[in-house]
């Protein structure tokens, strides 16, 4: 099945979401090409094993509508039937635009898919990951948004050989671009993740989490409740509308365990939860649960490590 994978340039490289989809595409033996979207000068995104077109946008324009116009042409000219994108902000915008152009609804939150003749069977996670919904798409064009971490990242030798398409447009201007500083271990690739919830009681107590994380060389995450409250930047949110993580050890501190949080962390290899409420749902998915007060136990762990 002729396939297009939509990728992004992140830190001059092909995004992890795209590399995860490449693994699945290779497993299924799909005939695919990649279109990468970004604004960097000469990223390492090309490969000998597939065709890669780079849509180079101005970072000062909101140009995804124009990118979608170009993608539409590529899909038509190459009679592409399956279009796959990671469920990121950029991926969601582009897949949505294309689904309108081709009058074919997308499927979101896809965690796996298989090819059956000319059709695609998808599994997508619903209800905070508690159920898996299976659908069949038989329309000529199929658009899938793939949840991060559904597949392992492909190891590829990336280079700078690709075709560049400059995107110029009348799109709205963008200004005051703010890049959040990345310090310390990152959520996506840390072996240990420590996440905080409202049960850390006050934003000031996050220093306790920070101290523990430094000792364990762990990345720090949080629930939407504390991100909305401004305790932590959005980039650290774990869950349905935040990041998906699969570390060796996930430590949930003062997190109730709403399904929307669970969906982003329940596949961690080992889950430790600390909550003062014995009935907190997080205990249902924890390997080790401590019914305890975060404020007293967290500093004690740090001191005794």
């Amino acid at each position: 099945m002729k396939t297009l994978i939509i990728g992004e340039v992140v830190d001059n490289k092909l995004s992890s979401g795209a590399l995860e989809i490449v693994t699945k595409a290779n497993d299924l033996g799909l005939d695919y090409e990649i279109v990468t979207v970004g604004s960097e000068e000469s990223p390492n995104i090309g490969s000998e094993s597939f065709k890669n077109t780079y849509m180079k946008c101005s970072e000062n324009k909101l140009s995804l509508g124009s990118v979608a116009d170009k993608l539409k042409n590529i899909i038509e000219e190459n009679t592409i039937s399956l279009v796959l994108a990671p469920s990121t902000y950029v991926g969601r915008d582009l897949i949505a635009f294309l689904s309108v152009d081709f009058k074919s609804s997308q499927i979101s939150n896809v965690i796996n898919f298989e090819i059956e003749g000319e059709s695609v069977i998808t599994s997508n996670s619903i209800n905070g990951g508690e159920s898996e919904y299976n659908s069949k798409i038989s329309s000529p064009n199929k658009f899938l948004l793939i949840r991060p971490k559904s597949f392992e990242e492909a190891a590829l030798d990336l280079n700078i050989n690709f075709e560049t398409v400059e995107i110029t447009s009348e799109d709205p201007e963008v200004f005051d671009i703010f890049i959040e500083e990345k310090t310390g271990p990152q959520l996506e690739d840390s072996k240990i993740v420590i996440s905080a919830g409202r049960g850390m009681v006050d934003s000031e107590n996050l220093s306790l989490v920070q101290d523990l994380a430094s000792k364990l060389n762990a990345a720090i995450g949080g629930t939407r409740a504390i991100v909305d409250a401004g305790w932590m930047p959005y980039s650290q949110q774990v869950g349905q509308t935040g990041k998906t993580v699969k570390p060796d050890v996930y430590i949930a501190l003062g997190i109730s365990g709403a399904t929307q949080h669970q969906v982003g962390m329940k596949d961690s290899k080992y889950i430790i939860a600390v909550n003062k409420d014995e009935e907190a749902p997080i205990f249902q998915i924890a390997d080790l649960g401590l019914v305890a007060d975060t404020l007293s136990i967290v500093p004690k762990i740090t001191e005794n490590l």
Partner: peptide, 11 residues
């Protein structure tokens, strides 16, 4: 264009 196949409880 989407056909429902089934729902599985995977909780």
């Amino acid at each position: 264009n989407l056909e429902f196949v089934d729902i599985k409880d995977v909780s």
